[in-house]
Write a protein that binds this DNA or RNA. Structure first.
Lengths: 264, 264
DNA sequence: AATTACGTTCCATATAATAGAACTACCCGG
DNA sequence: CCGGGTAGTTCTATTATATGGAACGTAATT
């Protein structure tokens, strides 16, 4: 084994696949196509290794390489994901309820689910203009600064929240973004209320209200939210929808019990 | 090496990743969650091997396993794909032109790209109701029964078309679906016309007109299409848009030369 | 033309995947 | 309550694959 590696805290190692996925993540999460050298620099691994790994990813269509030798996410990912999305049971069950909530509020409705320390948005209903599909869907956002994220945390047992928070790196997106302490405090509040707000904690000018959704055994934890521009949506205004959104969450959970309980 | 494998024509073997991707494809392309035994049956590989491979895919979030031990596509795929989509240069460049075409025709406009023997839909603009996002996007459809597919083939050199057609398994979706011979014949026609029709060849009741889009070195081959219900859109009616759609394709190609040529 | 940066290929070695079997848990019928 | 099948998991020597260091091309730069 080579030396100079023990300092890194990235203890991820599912073998070959794990290493490849780390690389794939790096390239897909970059803002623009990366050249070989750029990737090599952040991968701290030998040139030959990185080169072969990239070649394999390209061969499988997970990455693509343009004529300038720059790597971008591959289209194969789209095909795989479209199945993942179309078949997702949680999303299918929630769909009509999200639509109803959109009709009621006239604002954007999101469905999200907790994965690790992120909220992944599964669906979105926008009111006005033709939706730019995919827009938000599939995006992973930090738990600590999204309504859905905080709502989701509020129904987890306290030890699990603590453990999860310990894993978080709190990035200060806005002046209102939580720290570990303030987050834990607010979660207690949310537990009592049954709903969570996002008071411009992720993005200035954006507020939301969210309610948690969970399965009995907590194998699925997420939430619904109603989101909109801060100039139009004060916290008071959002509060008026608290009952509706919590009811909507309840109905989705009810539908899950029926839909997922007995085989199909 | 074990015997009883040479009959299969699946000569895909990029090493470890390749094998895992075959498995991942199997599960994501199924219509419903698969149990371990189901996967084992189609994978013809030893139990231990399949089990470990699935475990690795689950660990990486590419697959998910529910409480009944059934495997489904994982949400990690969504996150990866959303980046792939959002950053796709071809899609970004084409976007305004697709919108314009939608405004002009009032019908659904698709953008697709050739990958192997499939067309992958990259974007979609629908007129009327709020779009169900992801709907079609990311889906891979056979070249031989889609307007975009046939348009794309029409600009490839004849040998390449021949080779590609030889790889195809023609599934008869409707009474109008092409065979190898009729497809090759129509491609010649499309070469002259500059646009292709789909005369209910994939789905009864759906017709479309498409124009090809390609980069100089053919590293990118695809097309735009206008699609709609057959009762409203006769081939004559569609023909009226032939000039517009070809012009739209031209403009997209022009934009690509500018946008992709000089770095950025 | 010389120099440097960048990307690719090679090959002995180390590492991870493989395959077969043994093991466990569960379900169903007698 | 027991036996026998079915479904899924774990174990381990063997084999295949990935690794990494260095050597090799091949542009770009001056």
């Amino acid at each position: 084994m080579s030396a100079a590696k023990e300092s890194a805290s990235e203890a991820r190692d599912t073998g070959t696949l794990g290493k490849l996925m780390v690389l794939l993540d790096r390239v897909t999460h970059a803002d623009e196509p990366m050249r070989f050298t750029d990737i090599l620099a952040v991968a701290n691994q030998p040139r030959g290794t990185v080169h072969r790994q990239l070649s394999h990813l390209v061969e499988e269509g997970l990455l693509e390489i343009d004529t300038d030798g720059r790597y971008s996410p591959g289209l194969r990912l789209l095909d795989l994901a479209s199945r993942s999305w179309a078949r997702n049971e949680f999303r299918l069950i929630a769909e009509p309820h999200l639509k109803a909530l959109q009709d009621l509020t006239g604002e954007t409705v999101h469905l999200g689910v907790l994965r690790g320390t992120s909220i992944i948005y599964l669906d979105k209903f926008e009111g006005q203009q033709p939706v730019r599909m995919y827009s938000q869907i599939g995006n992973a956002s930090p738990v600590y600064c999204t309504g859905v994220g905080k709502a989701a945390l509020s129904i987890l047992p306290r030890e699990r929240v603590k453990a999860l928070v310990a894993d978080l790196a709190f990035h200060r997106f806005t002046a209102n973004t939580h720290t570990a302490e303030s987050l834990l405090a607010e979660i207690e509040e949310i537990r009592k209320q049954g709903h969570a707000f996002d008071r411009e904690e992720h993005e200035v000018g954006i507020r939301c209200i969210a309610a948690p959704i969970w399965s009995e055994n907590l194998s699925l934890v997420g939430g619904v939210s109603v989101t909109g521009p801060a100039y139009r949506l004060t916290v008071e205004r959002l509060s008026e929808w608290a009952a509706a959104i919590q009811e909507s969450a309840e109905r989705i959970m009810e539908a899950m019990r029926i839909g997922l309980g007995p085989r199909r």
